[in-house]
Amino acid sequence: MAKNKFEFEAPYLLLESKLDELRKLSVQLNTDFSAEIANIEKRLDQMREERYQHLTPWEQVLLARDVDRPTTKDYIKLLCSDFIELHGDRLYGDDPAIIGGIGIIDGRAVTVVGHQKGRDTKENINNNFGMPRPEGYRKAHRLLLEAEKFGRPVLTFINTPGADPGMGAEERGQAWAISEMLLCLSSLRVPVVSVVTGEGGSGGALALSVADRIIMLSNTVFSVASPETCASILLRDSKRADEMAASLKINAKSLYDMGIVDEVIEEPPRQYLLESTAFVQTLENSIKRHLDELCSLDVSELVELRYRRFRKIGKFNE
């Protein structure tokens, strides 16, 4: 079954296929089972939702990486009443792994920047699987400075396995491109809100996440390195990535408890992400609320609070 990418969903998919059979049967026998089917469907949704409350960290990693997840472009379409994409870093090229532009949210002009994964193989090859090269970060950097110039708040969407690990990226200063983003965001004189919509992979994700508020969707992750990398380095066995996913505490709930993210928005099962009006409404309201709060602050206070927000993160003995 091609659709069965998630083992934990197998029983629900099986039940769904049995329901399909029942529907066919009902036509063949010319008998109305619709009440029974509706009943089972309702029960199925309940079961699935219940299961989503008890996902393991590794299952959440798989969900965070789900290729069917809405991408930055989908969220922009959903949230922005008008969006104009802007291209290029003015230095070398235009990296499709990070998109950016300007638009209107809730009657307010904003700059939006986000990682852009593809929805199929062709798109993913074009977008380098959402792994930005230096020119992606430099495009984002340019757009951030533009946002600052015009006093526009910034909204970023995070979903990347990490920064591109290739030779060309190194040659053009990947580390320099990322650090310049961290520096720029940490003192940007406009509000910044980040939403983790999938995989928050290492420095390549952090480069867009130095924000006043970080919102995570409930089945997304943010990690210092991928569980596979950590397992291969620390346990010398990349197959033990599931163990690592638990030890690294990379899911939204853990990061909220650690004070690293500010809000977790409960996701519906993956099939209904954009269809669920309750989810979309909650996300929209949350972004609007954070922007309202942040826009009411004095600029120097805003920058000082952002500094302190990150300054206090870390655990040690004195």
């Binding site: 961290l182 940490s186 952090l206 950590c230 690293i260 300054r311 870390g314």
Partner: peptide, 16 residues
């Protein structure tokens, strides 16, 4: 890696 996101955030903190 053993400090997970606490360690990643140090990048943002030191850059700031």
């Amino acid at each position: 890696m053993q400090e997970g996101m606490f360690s990643l955030i140090q990048m943002a903190k030191t850059s700031a």
